[in-house]
Design a protein around this nucleic acid. Structure first.
Lengths: 223, 223, 223, 223
DNA sequence: AATGAATGAGCCTTCATTCAT
DNA sequence: GATGAATGAAGGCTCATTCAT
């Protein structure tokens, strides 16, 4: 915000400060995600967080309004990764079917990387204020837009049979989160790649129109 | 002691006491599920719980070892409903495809009825002791057995194409829980029945073998 | 009290009741002493006590006014043992020196038998009400009277040199209690008999008049 | 960290902090001893203690692990006084008899000054953890070493007749504690000095060898 | 006389938050 | 900006005591 008022190129001090602030924020966000994943939101004390991030307790309050605020920030931060990463992975893909597959894979990758924070959405949502919860719901809907778009495009192009777009997108998101939620179960029996491929195959088998099946034969193996 | 004089099943005192204890347990379990669903495990104080259940704080500790123990009991209680209800709903169904559909519907029904407690599994698992977590994992696996069995039978009978049984069962469980997890989202756009029918259709479209599709035509509508 | 109003031989019911009450009281007092010795007054709950004594919690309140009252009763009970046992052990002993030795031995024996409760006097005195504390102080003074009397008689007879009677009696009481207080230390190096003999020898060496030493030679060995 | 830039003994920050911490610890230890003496360990609540020490409840936990830990610290603190004060009072005394007398007087003085805390050893030992109890036993043994040494030296030099060193030392310790334990009784009849002199006389009368009595005539008056 | 379910005040402890330095 | 000592409200839990049966 400050950087909007005083453009960086006019005040080197300001700029340096902004950079430092950015770094601090990252440092805290990462430490928080790490700890909250391990011990749950309520299992992490501000003092433990300060220790993990190697700062003083007081400093956390310079960057975040309080513990709840921090939780919200952590969750928003992950959801932000989807908004950044997924469109990037999909930008060049024309074919809607390939795009759906690529989006799904991108989701799964982000979740795999943030397995920490991904589950926080499920676990700690009740902790947030109504306002925070609404913000997250919005972001979740926004975030799954690439999936919905691919499905809609595919339907329009006749590659997919007509389906309830929201429902299918929701299922795919659930499948992506499933990797984090039931990681304890699947990690013993299959690799991340197996998981993604098989789930993609299931979805495509369910919604691909008869005429498109041959073209995407390679993505339909269920086992 | 009394049971030596009068066999346990006849002793009116013993029996009356057991009944009262049962009622208390239910009363507490229900109040706990209700409150924990609304405020999260950590958002519920034992005093608030006592008030909700209209008992004193101390009494809770006669029936449960502590707050953690109570959470575990609430979760186990729901999982127990699956073990009781699902097999009953499915007992008479011969055809594996119908059985899969019926099982899924039964799961969804139980979850719909226990929407409170169902999400606790996701939200509060980190709170549990390692032992408690293991117990729940076991129960979850046991609980999803009817789904897996139907899928296996269907595959053997040629009704389903070959699939990763665990994965498909897991996806269906996720879909069932999805009704509770994203209830805030779907309740505005569709009824419980719609949700179940469409999800069933998606699964069957994905795994039904070409030869069986005609026979189950009525369950394949995706919209 | 009731038995004073209605002499036992006139009302067999009353008598039987009194006997049962007596037995209950003993049962509770013993259980309390046992448990309080092991876990300290505050470490014993009324429910634990009830269990140890194989009665219900409520019943304890029929016999004692409450927990504090029970503690007082336990302590008074032990102090009562002194009043009963010590004079009996000493009744026939004429010689003041022998009487002092016999009294001391009797004290030590009672303490050894009630090692449980003996330490309660030291440990839990602060728990008692002022009234209770005063009662115990009185009993303690009364209780040590045999020692003081022997010392006084011995001084009068010329067997002991002139000493501060109260102080010597107090020291001997302390020595007797020392067996309970430091039992953990001495039990490894000496028997009860050794302890009593040596302590007696120390006292006699300290206060025996020169002219009486020869006569009590056998009680003066310090090692 | 600071100590890397400025050696610990020069760093004013570090030093100031240490001093403040020291002061706090004293403040808490003293308040605890005072209150626990008056009301017993279990009679003192952490809130009452905080009030007495004029700090917040939470602060106590920065300095001590908990209530039990604090009790242990109070006791260790007193026992530490013995280890510091007694040897100092005795350092220059050559003659074993004088040394024994001086040690005993020093013990009594420390106890008189810490009358509060001294009795805690007797009263609350059962409250401590096994580890804490062991630590205290060790310290008690260590602490009484000056007495034992003086007795041994005196025996070797022929000033004392042969005695059970441990037992005599134990008795003297008991006598010293007696001043605190039965203070309510003796304070009415005699001064601290009287108490110490008479007790010393009793011990010396008991164990001084015939040949040394004349030389220590002045310390043998029993009344 | 006896039971034991039920109560609720009060305790120890934690931890989000503040503020003087 | 940064620190960390200090605060105190609130939570989980225990247990002496009561009372309907």
């Amino acid at each position: 915000m400050a950087s909007l008022a005083h453009p960086a190129h006019e005040d080197p001090d300001e700029a340096a400060r902004a950079v430092r602030a950015e770094r601090r924020t990252r440092q805290l966000l990462d430490a928080a995600a790490r700890l909250m994943d391990r011990d749950g939101f309520h299992g992490v004390s501000m003092q433990a967080l300060a220790a993990e991030a190697s700062v003083s307790v007081g400093l956390i309050y310079r960057y975040f309004g309080g513990k709840d605020d921090l939780l919200l920030a952590v969750i928003v931060d992950v959801l932000g990764s989807f908004a950044t990463r997924v469109p990037r992975s999909v930008a060049a893909v024309e074919d809607p079917v390939d795009r759906l597959a690529a989006s799904f894979r991108a989701y799964c990758e982000v979740i795999d990387e943030h397995r920490h924070a991904a589950v926080l959405t499920y676990r700690e949502s009740r902790t947030l204020s109504a306002a925070g919860r609404d913000k997250i719901k919005d972001l979740e809907v926004q975030t799954s837009e690439p999936l919905r778009e691919a499905i809609r495009d595919g339907m329009r192009a006749g590659a997919f049979v007509p389906v309830d777009v929201d429902l299918v997108a929701h299922d795919m998101l659930l499948m992506a989160h499933g990797w984090a939620l039931k990681h304890w179960y699947f990690e013993r029996t299959q690799s991340f790649d197996d998981y993604v491929s098989k789930q993609t195959a299931l979805v495509l088998n369910a919604i691909l129109s008869p005429g498109s099946r041959e073209q995407h034969q390679d993505k339909l193996a269920l086992q």
